[in-house]
């Protein structure tokens, strides 16, 4: 093997080795646990393989955990609520992020880097700290309520913390940069002469935006939406800190199952089901995207 080829293989295989060790293997373990039965003891699940006699191994596969997910409406509701929360948050991010990205992409070149820096600046502070900061802003005697009451606009504090509203604020705030950056990347490289051509053919700027800019920025819209939607579905910290006790998110259910009920098999089943729920539609979507983009230079 020539050294160049060997080098190329090394470069490719190292990250894959990493993923294999720290992603695929744990995934298989979790998958295995999800097929076992709960028991008291450590670890709190039945081993899958058991020596019955000298040359006999019994394999126990328990599909009951998955069946349980279907039986108990708690899980279905949690899944649905997670999906809808993530979808609404993604949509809000898009609504706020698109004009931001568009504005940055169309400003003078010397300003763009500064504006992008400002978008990324919050990452320099701990995520957890920033979510806690929202508690201080949203709580009953927090920044907003004190301000409004001080101005005499309200005399009762508005309950914002521990509501879905607070969860939306937390998610949109935290994930907005992930929407803005890919959108900016596609909008920034768009050819301005296309808009000139549209105007030249009698197209009003507003219609030109809908007919040219928006369709051509779809790859950015899709990338940004996936980057927001996927982590938002499994989000645990934000609903735990900002949401109420009845904010049912799958991440929270998973946590409860694992640490409060100590039911590792069901918790694992919840995790696997969530993964399938997300991965399958995304893979189908990417396949369709790839087919559509196929042939582009």
């Amino acid at each position: 093997m020539r050294p160049v080829v060997a080098g190329r293989w090394a470069v490719i295989s190292l990250p894959y080795l990493w993923l294999l060790l720290f992603f695929l293997v744990p995934f298989v373990i979790v998958f295995k646990i999800s097929l076992s039965d709960i028991r008291l003891g450590m670890p709190p699940y039945q081993p899958m393989l058991q020596w019955v006699e000298a040359q006999m191994v019994s394999i126990q596969i328990n599909l009951g955990n998955y069946a349980f997910l279907f039986e108990d409406p708690l899980y279905r509701n949690a899944y649905l609520h997670s999906l809808s929360t993530a979808a609404v948050s993604t949509f809000l991010c898009l609504l706020i992020g698109y004009p931001m990205a568009y504005g940055i992409a169309r400003t003078d070149k010397s300003w763009r880097n500064l504006l992008l820096m400002l978008v990324m600046l919050p990452f320099w502070t701990s995520f957890l700290l920033r979510v806690y900061a929202w508690i201080g802003i949203l709580k009953n005697n927090g920044l907003i309520n004190n301000l409004l009451m001080g101005m005499g606009l309200i005399d009762q504090p508005i309950v914002m913390l521990q509501t879905d509203f607070a969860v939306y604020i937390g998610i949109v705030y935290s994930y907005l940069p992930f929407m803005v950056l890919p959108l900016y990347a596609t909008l920034e490289k768009q050819d301005i002469t296309l808009l000139e051509a549209a105007a030249d053919l009698g197209c009003h700027p507003v219609r030109a935006f809908l007919a040219i800019t928006l369709p051509l920025s779809m790859p950015g819209v899709v990338a940004g939406s996936l980057l927001v939607f996927i982590p938002a579905v499994g989000e645990f910290v934000i609903p735990a800190l900002l949401g109420g006790p009845d904010t049912l998110m799958i991440g929270k259910v998973l946590w409860n199952e694992f640490f409060q009920n100590r039911d590792w098999p069901v918790a694992s089943a919840v995790a696997i089901a969530m993964l399938l729920l997300l991965v399958v539609p995304i893979m189908l979507f990417q396949l369709a995207q790839g087919r559509q983009a196929g042939g582009h230079p």
């Binding site: 050819d191 002469t193 000139e196 051509a197 030249d200 053919l201 197209c203 700027p205």
Partner: peptide, 14 residues
Amino acid sequence: PYRRPVNMMFQSYA
């Protein structure tokens, strides 16, 4: 430009 009785062929074709 969108109200001018003029059309243009762009260098990059656009």
